[in-house]
């Protein structure tokens, strides 16, 4: 991660930069999530992917960003399972629209301010969010 980007992360007191993994990783609480990503986008970062990981009690939204064509890092933001809401990234990265719809579809995370918050891969009448861990393969709720 370049010093400029690290400085941007540093300017958010609640953001935490973790360089111990294979790629740099920024953990940020929900409140400053979009502000941080917007600041990074302003510094020239591109969006590679928006996805999520279910950690039982909480869901971790993972945003893969590209500092340059070869340099990648990610921004992680935990949302609690009982209140799975987070700001949408569409105003910052228009390409996040369908990826966020997919996260909503498969994890049940609501993106506040999303232009089209609907399911994308599963039919609209589908019940449940299959990539959550409690959604077992045996269960067929439809």
């Amino acid at each position: 991660m370049t010093p400029e980007l690290a400085a941007i992360v540093g300017s958010f007191p609640d953001a935490e930069l973790d360089s111990s993994g294979l790629d740099p990783l920024v953990r940020v609480p929900r409140d400053s999530y979009r502000a941080l990503v917007a600041a990074l986008a302003g510094a020239g970062c591109r969006l590679s992917d928006v996805t999520a990981v279910d950690h039982m009690a909480s869901i971790e939204v993972v945003v893969q960003l590209l500092a340059s064509a070869s340099e990648q890092f990610s921004v992680h933001c935990m949302v609690h399972e009982d209140d799975p809401r987070i700001d949408t990234l569409v105003p910052v990265f228009p390409s996040a629209e369908y990826a966020e719809r997919e996260v909503f579809d498969l994890f049940g995370v609501d993106f506040l301010g999303h232009p089209d918050p609907s399911r994308v891969l599963l039919p609209d009448h589908f019940l449940g969010h299959p990539l959550r861990k409690e959604f077992g393969l045996e269960v067929a709720p439809w």
Binding site: L106, L121, L122, P123, P130, L137
Partner: peptide, 10 residues
Amino acid sequence: LGYLHRGIEK
């Protein structure tokens, strides 16, 4: 989308 969704990620 989704007509060919097989849930590979799951």
